[in-house]
Amino acid sequence: MSLLVVLDHDRGTWSEANDEAMTAAHTLAADMGVQIDVALVGDGALDLSGQARAAGAAVVHVANHPMLTDFGPEAVGETIVQLIGAASPDAVMAVGTSRGNEILAQIAARMDLPFVANCMSVTPGDGAWSITRIQWGGSLLEDTTLVTDGPKLLTYGHHAVLAEAAPAPGAGIVEEFTPDLDGSLARTIVVDRDVQQAGVTLSTASVVVSGGRGVGSAEGFEQLEELADLLGGRVGCSRAVTNLGWRNHTDQVGQTGTRIAPEIYIATGISGAIQHWVGAMASKRILAINIDAEANMVVKADYAVIADLHKVVPAITAEIKRRKGL
């Protein structure tokens, strides 16, 4: 009896989403009355078995195969399907990152089983499981039932669970296995990587300074850039700004852009349409700077300044420089 957690890593670097996965897994496994096993796939995975054990894994399945060096959704999906065949878990879960949802979808397609993506809470039952999941990026919730004779397949929404330290380490028994992968699955394996940004990224930044239509122009973002640089953060933007061509889509915060969770989100000149809000709502604190006191972003923020962002943002930069003696 087990809950199998598919963990993510990048060539041996532990993904922060794994901490959320294991936190959610502890609750779900306790409700199911089963142990937590984990699956780690590919080069560098074995090095992470200690972290998986510390996070509470009873068994750490490590899959090795020449085709698993870099990510390939079909090869990884097929690998987990074979592991499910061998280990017969009662449920299989991951965190709903881009990869997490894709791997679970691959498993579901291959086994022709239902898959519930981006769950908030899961109540196991003898027959149907009752699940609340995210729709509209988190603006709506869906109560749903999951009925299947096979293992339950699900992901928890990314940032839907606050990562906590494991109550106790697991036995952490390492079981290595080599899946039988057809050579044709190489068709969807990464052939090259084009890493463009060094250092802090939008999704991992502790400070995000973001601008909306209220910034007024592409040049208007220079003030935001200066403040973000000073704080070691990143500049974000709203969908309106991307559509106006002022910023690249890679800077877009929102349902169809990047979902962020910084220590503080400084949202300037952003009205706060729901598709933007759901990308920003996992921020620990939100400061809105806007001339409109009734803007959705202002109403939902922890702190607000009702003023022209082009006066306030340079004033923040100047105040930081003054205090640091820069």
């Binding site: 870099d70 881009s98 969807t188 990464v190 090259d192 990587r193 084009d194 890493v195 940004q197 060094a198």
Partner: peptide, 9 residues
């Protein structure tokens, strides 16, 4: 798209 750039297939 990945966090710091692109994977190419």
């Amino acid at each position: 798209e990945i966090d710091a750039g692109f994977e190419v297939y």
